[in-house]
Structures are given as structure tokens and as C-alpha cells.
């Protein structure tokens, strides 16, 4: 424990002193503030002279405004944040020859990798919490709505899911920093994985579903069973990507109007009508029930990723030459 604490403190100090940390947090805070001001003003405009609908506070995070929503931004930029914080954590010490010195001190070898991972997680948590608080404060000023207990709980869950998700990417980049001797290689490898999951998995999913269950136009229109099969295959394939898991989980948690994580919702005209007339947000507990499988999956892949990283590091021989 002692070793972990000492290395953790040093790593935190390194992070705080690094230009990298400054740039990333400045970027996130800046984008967050800009998005919130735009969204906040739009909401203010729309609400003039109207009774305030429930759960409006969450709109600050989810509504897209002119550009994109904060949630979308974190969904896109979060993995990069994790990668930036971890891609040179082990190989930097290897190149500067401090790793061999570190392992010859009376500490357990795993405390090095544990402390590096934990300090990255702590930094991510600090950035996320600070940004969400900043946006909340700005939102309260702009919109004039104080968040209720349910909105706050939803936001807390959102932050926790995001933390887990970004930690997964931190784990990936630390894994590559253990495997590759050069920081540039490990950064590129992490980015390659990121690009693969963000673009190619969804592309592959649609190709696969087209191949397995093609939607053909018949005289009577689209065969609904085929359409459902097509959607199901596409969905299952894209769930391979942690990004899909994350975006489905967060949008469902933050938008109580959503009753399912699925994108395709077949509804008759009457159901559609009732949707628009009777808004009935889902209670928090039920939103959680819907995304529980997603959260468990994200926790599992994060732990798996760190586990592999841990094993590889423990088995490596650390030589000075």
C-alpha cells in the first residue's frame, strides 16, 4: 500500500504539472462552457411565458443546440482523454531508465501499474466532476432552474458511467505503453483502436446486417419481420463497440423520456399520438434497470483491459539495456 500511495502522489503531481493536462482540461472546460451558453440561451428563449417542463435541467447536457451536446462531446472526446493520459505512462519510465530503478526499490511491482492507473482515473474524475459542476452552475444562472434530486442523481450516474468508460480507454493506452517501447507507437496503436471502434464497427454492423437480413422492397412494402431482424443483427454487432454501450447507456440515463436503449422503435399512429400528448418520464430506478446490462458490460471490459495490462506488466522482464 505504501508504494502505491507514494507513486500515486508523484504521478498526480506529474499530471498537474504537465502541459498536457492543462491543455486537455482547458479544451474540455472551454467546449463545455460554449456549448452550455448556447444551449442555455436557446432553452431560455423557448421557455418564455411557458410553464417549465419537468427535468429541464438535463437538457443542458443532452440538447444539441447548433453544434453538438456536451454528452456527445464527451462521448467523442472522452476516449482521447483516456488515451492522452496513459499512452506513455510505462514506456516513458523505460526510456528514461527509471523503471529499472523503480522495480529495485522495496515495493511490489504491481504498485507501479496500479498507481499509474489510479492516478489517471483520479485525474479523469477531477476533470469530469469539475466540468459538470461548472456547466451546472452556468446552467442555473442562464436557465434559472435548480436541479432536483432526480436530476442530480441522473447526473451522478452519468459521471460514474463516463468515468468507467474513459478509464477503459486509459487501460487500453496503458496496456500499449507496456507493450510498445516507443511512446509514439503506443499512441498510434491506441488511436487505431479508437478509430476502429468509433467508425468501423458501426460500418461493419450495417454491412453485416445487410448481408444476413437484406431489406427488400416488395409489393406490400417492407416486410416488418425482416426489418426487425435486420435491426437486431445491426444492434448486436455494434454492441461489440464500447462506444455504442456508452452512448446508449448515457442517453438513456440522461433522457427519462427514453424507455429503451434501442434506436428502432416501431409505433402505431395512436401510440405516437399518446407519446406527444402525454409526456411520462421514466422514474430513475427504471432508467437504471434499463441500462444496468450496459453498465456491467462497461465495468467488465474496463476490468478486463486493466487485468491484461497488469498481467503483461508483471510478466515482463525489466532490463537496463
Amino acid at each position: 500500500m505504501h508504494g502505491i500511495l507514494t507513486i500515486f502522489r508523484k504521478e498526480m503531481g506529474d499530471h498537474f504539472n504537465s502541459l498536457r493536462f492543462l491543455l486537455i482540461s482547458a479544451l474540455i472546460v472551454m467546449v463545455g462552457v460554449i456549448i452550455t451558453s448556447m444551449v442555455g440561451m436557446a432553452i431560455q428563449e423557448e421557455l418564455k411565458g411557458m410553464a417549465k417542463p419537468s427535468l429541464i435541467f438535463l437538457l443542458l447536457f443532452t440538447s444539441t443546440g447548433k453544434l453538438f451536446s456536451f454528452v456527445q462531446f464527451i462521448g467523442f472526446f472522452g476516449p482521447l482523454l483516456g488515451i492522452f493520459l496513459g499512452f506513455d505512462s510505462i514506456n516513458r519510465e523505460r526510456v528514461s531508465r527509471t523503471l529499472s530503478k523503480l522495480v529495485s526499490q522495496p515495493i511490489f511491482r504491481d504498485s507501479i501499474i496500479n498507481a499509474k492507473f489510479l492516478s489517471g482515473v483520479a485525474i479523469i474524475a477531477i476533470i469530469l466532476v469539475a466540468t459538470v459542476l461548472l456547466i451546472s452552475g452556468l446552467g442555473i444562472r442562464l436557465v434559472g432552474v435548480v436541479p432536483g434530486v432526480e436530476e442530480v442523481s441522473r447526473l451522478v450516474i452519468y459521471v460514474v458511467i463516463s468515468l468507467l468508460y474513459i478509464s477503459f480507454w486509459l487501460g487500453i493506452s496503458i496496456l500499449f505503453s507496456v507493450i510498445f517501447k516507443s511512446a509514439a507507437t503506443s499512441a498510434l496503436a491506441s488511436l487505431a483502436i479508437w478509430i476502429f471502434f468509433s467508425f468501423f464497427v458501426s460500418l461493419g454492423a450495417s454491412v453485416l446486417s445487410d448481408a444476413v437480413a437484406p431489406i427488400s422492397q416488395t409489393a406490400s412494402g417492407v416486410d416488418p419481420e425482416m426489418l426487425i431482424r435486420h435491426e437486431r443483427i445491426q444492434r448486436l454487432t455494434s454492441l461489440v463497440s464500447p462506444m455504442t454501450l456508452y452512448s446508449e447507456a448515457t442517453t438513456t440515463i440522461l433522457d427519462p423520456m427514453r424507455k429503451t436503449t434501442r434506436t428502432l422503435i416501431l409505433m402505431g399512429p395512436l401510440e405516437r399520438f399518446s407519446m406527444s400528448r402525454f409526456q411520462s418520464p421514466l422514474p430513475l430506478l427504471e432508467s437504471i434497470f434499463i441500462v444496468i446490462p450496459h453498465i456491467i458490460s462497461i465495468v467488465a471490459i474496463t476490468l478486463l483491459c486493466f487485468g491484461i495490462c497488469y498481467l503483461v506488466f508483471m510478466r515482463q522482464e525489466i532490463r537496463t539495456v
Binding site: N17, E93, S96, R97, T98, L99, S100, K101, S104, Q105, P106, I107, F108, T320, V321
Partner: peptide, 20 residues
């Protein structure tokens, strides 16, 4: 290894430091 490393020092060739 813990007991050994507590009382044994090792200076590797071209020892590295935290340069900053």
C-alpha cells in the same frame, strides 16, 4: 524480493532520473 530490496542497492549502468 521485498526483504532483499530493502537492504540491497542497485545502480544500473546509465542510471535514469526524473529529469524534470
Amino acid at each position: 524480493p521485498f526483504k532483499v530490496k530493502e537492504k540491497v542497492g542497485y545502480l544500473p549502468e546509465n542510471v535514469g532520473f526524473y529529469d524534470d
